[in-house]
């Protein structure tokens, strides 16, 4: 008589564990928390959140380390070099290190830490990696042109009611919808 009960309990436990890795917080709660964090960042630091800026600083630091003369001559990179201090000593670089730590903590608590390439069953791992890389390259170029990415320009810029933030946000999401049809095989 005990067997079925044990089995049921094991199944229920399994279900909880399975659900756990896919259970996320409510989207509106996440949004309010993110908004409050953004507000606090504005209040403390005078500017919002960012991500691509930190990568830009590390590009500048790398180029400056490998080819200092080239870095100083480069009109774009020299802007990030400033007063001789390494560009890695920037607010955004520390913020991005925090993103990695925070995401790791959240993933650990929810049982989502795993080396994994997430992809649609219709495409190979190689295709997924290739397009993830190409998407990154485009995001890199676009974020420099628009002076910020989804975090710095679209989210923070829009919240501060900057015209460029709103325009960039509409262009990012608009273009993604526009091109979604062409790349549907990658996802659905």
């Amino acid at each position: 008589m005990e067997q079925p009960n044990l089995k049921k309990a094991a199944e229920a436990e399994n279900l909880i564990f399975m659900d756990k890795s896919k259970s996320y917080i409510n989207s509106y709660l996440g949004g309010v928390l993110l908004g409050l964090l953004l507000l606090a960042t504005f209040y403390i630091n005078g500017r919002g959140l960012g991500a691509s800026g930190a990568i830009k600083d590390s590009v500048a630091a790398t180029v400056n380390e490998i080819a200092p003369g080239h870095a100083r001559e480069s009109e774009y990179i020299s802007k990030s070099l400033g007063d001789g201090e390494t560009p890695l000593n920037s607010w955004l670089v520390f913020e991005v290190l925090g993103i990695l730590a925070g995401s790791f903590i959240s993933g650990a608590l929810a049982g989502r830490l795993k080396w994994k390439t997430e992809h649609s069953p219709n495409i190979s791992i190689r295709t997924r990696i290739l397009f993830a890389g190409m998407g990154g390259i485009l995001f890199g170029i676009g974020s420099q042109l628009a002076r910020g990415c989804t975090s710095g320009a679209a989210l923070s810029g829009s919240a501060a009611m900057g015209l460029s933030g709103i325009v960039t946000m509409m262009c990012i999401f608009g273009a993604a919808y526009l091109f979604a049809w062409f790349f549907r095989k990658l996802w659905i």
Partner: peptide
């Protein structure tokens, strides 16, 4: 350009 990168890569920088 970022929008195109978004639909190809599935991520934004953050």
């Amino acid at each position: 350009i970022m929008g195109l990168g978004f639909i190809m890569g599935g991520f934004c920088p953050g």
